[in-house]
Amino acid sequence: MTPVPRARLSADTAAMDRRDAAWYVDRIAQWLVFAGGVSAIVFIVGIFVFVTREGLDFVLGSLNLREFFGSIAWRPTSNNPTYGALALIVGTASVTGFAMLMSVPLSLGVALFIAEFATGKTRETLKILVEMLAAIPSVVWGFVGMSIMNPLIIETFDVPVGLNVMNAGLILGLMAAPIMTTIAEDALKAVPDSYREAAEALGATRWEVIWKVVIPASKNGILAAVLLGVGRGFGETMAVLMASGHAINLPTSPFDSVRALTATIAAELGDTVQGGNHWGALFTLGILLFVVTFVINLTADIVVRGIGKE
């Protein structure tokens, strides 16, 4: 047995310890995917920057906050233009509110049915149907509002106009339902089975388990689901544009036509002069929409995070 001189071993390892092509490829790949990850931040910041950039002149120049939030006079094309967004804000709020009134109980009911009662094939089928519901494009929903719901509402309620808060609200409710159902169901499913078993062992019925154990344990997730539903309704554009009647109006009943923030941008941007006050005002509505949905999403995220802490 001849002892191996250490110097030779070291030389050997030194030869092996080279940064080869694979090492560099790995490095490059790491940077590329990192860039991909960071791009999400770049895009969301980019959205804010570019929308603000176009709206900034208006915000700094012609924007009168009291008029913007206090007046219903949205007359961007008159000789003496006014930019009162109150009616648009109320329009969006009324349609979203009507939608939530219908959609929140409905979605939670569906989520509870799927999570707690349905089993096997029924469960899978229902989840697929909910997914299909989410897939229907908003322009098709808008078309449905115009061509199917409109005559239906006129006939059923004997009102002159069927394009109104109710029509857009119902459509929006159906559109927001899938996301609320999915998130709420996830939250319900996240409640450990041991909770249910413990309660059932104490003699509670399925309903009591749900009402007293499962719902309290998943209330954060359910709240997040509702928030995201609100966000979805708030930001919906085409369906609301087509089904709400698009009339500047402070609604007093579900049968009044209204106009939404999103719809206003969609309807008017094509006819405005780039860089003008009207243009800037529409981008300012965009900033408002961005900020509100950002806050809603952020809140939902914080609420969901709360689950982890418990």
Binding site: E54, A266, L289, T293
Partner: peptide, 11 residues
Amino acid sequence: LAGVPSIVHAL
């Protein structure tokens, strides 16, 4: 990005 209204994406 998923939650921003489509019309804001348009802007």
